[in-house]
Design a protein around this nucleic acid. Structure first.
Lengths: 337, 337
DNA sequence: CTGAAAGCGCTAACAG
DNA sequence: CTGTTAGCGCTTTCAG
């Protein structure tokens, strides 16, 4: 069996309290005693039991960070944008001795609540990566006082997001520089980020003196199966005869290519397209996709920072971190006129 | 504060022992009492504390599965092959009430051992996805009696792997059917899987009456940075003037394309290539890569099954599961002669 | 079928 | 600076 603070206390002729204090860096312990205890611990191969700490301490801390990933079960962690964010997050929190674990996705008819889930595991704080902002469970989650930080949920207290507005505006700039003016913008219409991006679209047009026409904006779902088809059909029937379609993400853009081809349109010769996110795929395939690259490393890092600061009760100046993006030029946009 | 078995016991006029027994399905409890307790629990929103259970019970179970992912920190979970396996694993173990958490990668100079890490979290069992089979820490890990299952570590007691031999042999069959006979096979030379694949290569040649020439086998690293360049250079200088290079994984194959182009060779016109794994990228890009698709869903599922059975002390007939693969034909191989 | 009591490994007042 | 004591939420003999 593993060694406990009792073994250490015995070996050092002191109480478990003293040992506990050493490991928690609290109270006043003499230099010598401290060294003695540390030495004994390392000799005996002592590791603290998170479970016991979690039980005994008022903070209930287990040094565990929960990840709530609300995209389809299928995609989940295999979505590059999210896996990169989570990986960066993991690296960052591990530096401080935290590990990460996934929280199950609760369905609306589950008895369990997220608070219960978190309590039952002694989870210290959670990172939310979610598209599902409507469900009852989700509202519950957001209203708990568990320390939390989100990616892209602009109505949460602490969040990290990308410069979405600037990204789309930059894309429009680029498109105009390539001679495009009949632009269709596919808008998922789901919450704050979509709104920011739409603002970017409108600003981009304005900056380039292109009159805004509401038919330019195509309402269509995100990431979902068939998203590409729906969006593409709507865009082509919008009445503005677009020379370019701006898709809400790279995966949709990529899968639009075969669909467009199936109805006789080749990218970029017959029609140009853009994406969003900057996943590896979009840059390696031919034609490579013009897109906005989200800085996943920086996003993950900032999620970690924001959460860790809450856990350590540190002062937080900026509760919202907005990470710069980068326009990736590619082959999916043709220069016209 | 969350409700405990004390609250339930009080409400039901019984002892905590009785309540505990109900939740553990042990001992004899009257039907009525059981129902009463269950009802009270659900009314009070009771959830068991994993930490307390882990502390109190002899099994120390926390209903947590640890994932050891030993590939570069950079890639880690963002590697599609692994993220898909982990996701499938996650879905499977969640059905049984287990959650998964990542185990930190211990360096050889870390004081900590994996056993300590596992103990400190009350982790029930681990799943090992690793390329690093040499380090001291790793040997330690393999020698502990923690329930464990691995992907691709053919010397571990319980493992899941793909039909690697058959995959490569199938690839050779296809290449020969496309007129290729001067084939270079890049072999990472790291453990059992590489050996299996090499066997497949040799069998494939034999079956097609192509004499084996040791120069056909190129020793080069896996996944690593520059792997593609090293392997390609060696293959081109092997003396057999290959018409096709078989890379050990899709990422290496994909990154070989620009390198080949930089030295004046276009895929597949001037040279054909194949990959391994069947990641999405390899199929969407142009040219699409001829490769062997590993069934990640099935792999993850079987890892989960093998581990869960150990945890439940069930009889296990087959300790090794070998999952079928699929040859994916693509554009990266040209028909010649 | 049910319960009393001890204890898992640790922390947190409170004394000294 | 150090120790005593109680207790976190649960399981587990052992009696009844």
């Amino acid at each position: 069996m593993a060694c406990t603070i009792y073994d250490i206390a015995k070996k050092c002729n002191c109480s478990t309290t003293t040992v506990s204090k050493v490991f928690n860096n609290v109270g006043k312990i003499s230099k010598e005693k401290k060294k003695e205890i540390l030495d004994a611990a390392s000799e005996l191969g002592y590791v603290r039991s998170h479970s016991a700490i979690s039980l005994a301490s008022s903070s209930r801390s287990n040094h565990l960070i929960g990840v709530v990933l609300h995209i389809s079960e299928e995609k989940s962690i295999t979505h590059e944008l999210f896996s990169e964010i989570i990986n960066s997050l993991r690296i960052e929190v591990e530096k401080e001795g935290y590990d990460i674990c996934f929280l199950r996705n609760l369905k609306s008819d589950d008895k369990l609540t997220y608070t219960q889930l978190v309590n039952s595991r002694g989870i210290d704080g959670i990172v939310i990566l979610s598209m599902e902002t409507e469900s009852k469970k989700f509202t519950q989650l957001m209203n708990t006082d568990i320390p939390k930080v989100s990616f892209d949920l602009l109505n949460s207290e602490y969040y990290v997001t990308s410069m979405n507005k600037e990204g789309v505006a930059g894309l429009v700039d680029y498109l105009v520089s390539m001679g495009h003016t009949r632009i269709c913008y596919v808008n998922p219409d789901t919450g704050g980020v979509a709104k920011k991006r739409l603002e970017g679209f409108i600003e981009g047009l304005a900056k380039n003196n292109i009159p805004f026409d509401s038919r330019m904006v195509i309402k269509a779902p995100y990431y979902s199966t068939g998203a590409a088809k729906i969006a593409t059909d709507k865009a082509l029937n919008s009445g503005i005869e677009p020379t370019v379609i701006m898709y809400p993400d790279d995966y949709t853009a990529v899968s639009a290519i075969p669909y467009l081809r199936s109805i006789g349109l080749k990218v970029p010769n017959d029609i140009s397209i853009t994406g969003f996110d900057g996943v590896e795929l979009s840059q390696v395939m031919r034609p490579s996709i013009v897109t906005v690259k989200q800085d996943t490393k920086e996003i993950g890092k900032n999620c970690a920072k924001l959460l860790l600061k809450q856990l350590k009760k540190q002062e937080i100046e900026k509760r919202h971190v907005i990470v710069p993006v980068q326009i990736l030029k590619g082959e999916s946009v043709k220069k016209i006129n």
